[in-house]
Each structure stands twice: as C-alpha cells, then as structure tokens.
C-alpha cells in the first residue's frame, strides 16, 4: 500500500488540473521591475531584515547569513531599501550610473 503511494502514477497528470510547484509560476518576474535594488556588501551587517521582509523571497540567504539579490525574480518593490537599517541597499534605474558601481557590479546580471 505504502509503496504505491511513493511511486505516484503520473499518467493522469496531463488529464487533470493539478499544478506542480515551479519557480517562476508567473514567468520571470524580474521583467516587471522599474528600478532595481543594489546591495553594497561593505555596508551590510547581515541583520537579514531585507531577507525576511522581501515579499518575493528574491533575497537569497546564503551560508554565514550573507545575502544576495536574485535579479531574475526581484520585482523591484523597494521594501528592502526602505527596511535596511544601514542603508546598504539603494534603488537605481536600469543603466543608471551610481556610486560604488564597480564593487556592486559583480553581483548584477
């Protein structure tokens, strides 16, 4: 009985309306963005407020609590910029020139 449950019969999948968990269920939502957040790693104190408040989950928490912005899905709402207590995140228009660009550019797409 249990083995049957584990080996799920997928032959019906195409005939039923069951959706499967997928990243990007609404497409690459990064294209919705008007302004993009840029993180200055030097100012970042790893408090993780941007990570928990990002509505999209587009701020990735890495080993050692460092954070990285996933530009593929970031919708550019700016909550991270507003909530960062150390002002380590700024919002810039695509293609705009800003301070510390060279250092931050490593992480940009």
């Amino acid at each position: 009985m249990i083995s049957k449950v584990e080996k799920r019969d997928r032959s019906m999948d195409k005939r039923t309306t069951i959706s499967r968990p997928t990243e990007g269920a609404a497409g690459k939502t990064g294209s919705w963005r008007d302004q993009k957040p840029v993180l200055d790693q030097k100012k970042c104190k790893k408090c993780l407020r941007c990570w928990i408040f990002c509505p999209e989950g587009a701020i990735v928490r890495k080993e050692g609590d460092a954070v990285e912005i996933d530009y593929e899905y970031c919708k550019g709402c700016g909550v991270c910029m507003k909530e960062c207590p150390f002002k380590a995140i700024i919002m810039v228009r695509e293609g705009e020139v800003y301070e510390n660009q060279e250092e931050c550019a490593k992480e940009e797409p």
Partner: peptide
Amino acid sequence: LLKGNAACPGC
C-alpha cells in the same frame, strides 16, 4: 512560497 509568483510588487 516560490519565487516568480504572480503577487504584486510589495505584496
């Protein structure tokens, strides 16, 4: 809740 969902920005 996976990335790339259809919520408004800042939802």
